[in-house]
Amino acid sequence: MEPRVARVVTQLRRGTLEYCVLAVLRHEQRYAFDLVQDLGRTGLVTSEGTIYPLLSRLRRDGLVESTWEESPSGPPRRYYQLTADGRAALTAFVQEWTTFRSSVDAVLPDLEDRG
């Protein structure tokens, strides 16, 4: 990828990833392992382990909360769920993102025609 473009993509990914995490949690609480694996499969992150620091920060910021539960088979499981603040942040982001996306989409085809 062209370096300048790669930088923008990295920044976009970094900025939007935490809202993708919130979005994955919008319906129900999720077991950390499954949550991380699902996000890994989307291609948004190349290393699943880098999601844990993000979850940690979202928890410190009060957007998600976590509970440990004993598992009948295997290690104790940590479950994550959205807080009210997390839900509000997600809603606000979805609105902004929708506007942003349509604005960019509206301009990009013109550039392609000229190119």
């Binding site: 950390a32 392992f33 991380v36 694996q37 890994g40 190349t46 290393s47 699943e48 382990g49 880098t50 844990y52 620091p53 979850l55 940690s56 088979s73 295997g74 290690p75 104790p76 499981r77 940590r78």
Partner: peptide, 30 residues
């Protein structure tokens, strides 16, 4: 706690150590 639990779970599900660690990424990355 998160990373050790993740490795335990991956192995408990029958994945190879190689596969679990490769998908996690290096400790430096994390």
């Amino acid at each position: 706690m998160s990373v050790t639990a993740h490795i335990d779970e991956g192995i408990a599900r029958g994945e190879s150590v190689d596969a679990v660690l490769a998908r996690l990424g290096s400790p430096e990355e994390i």
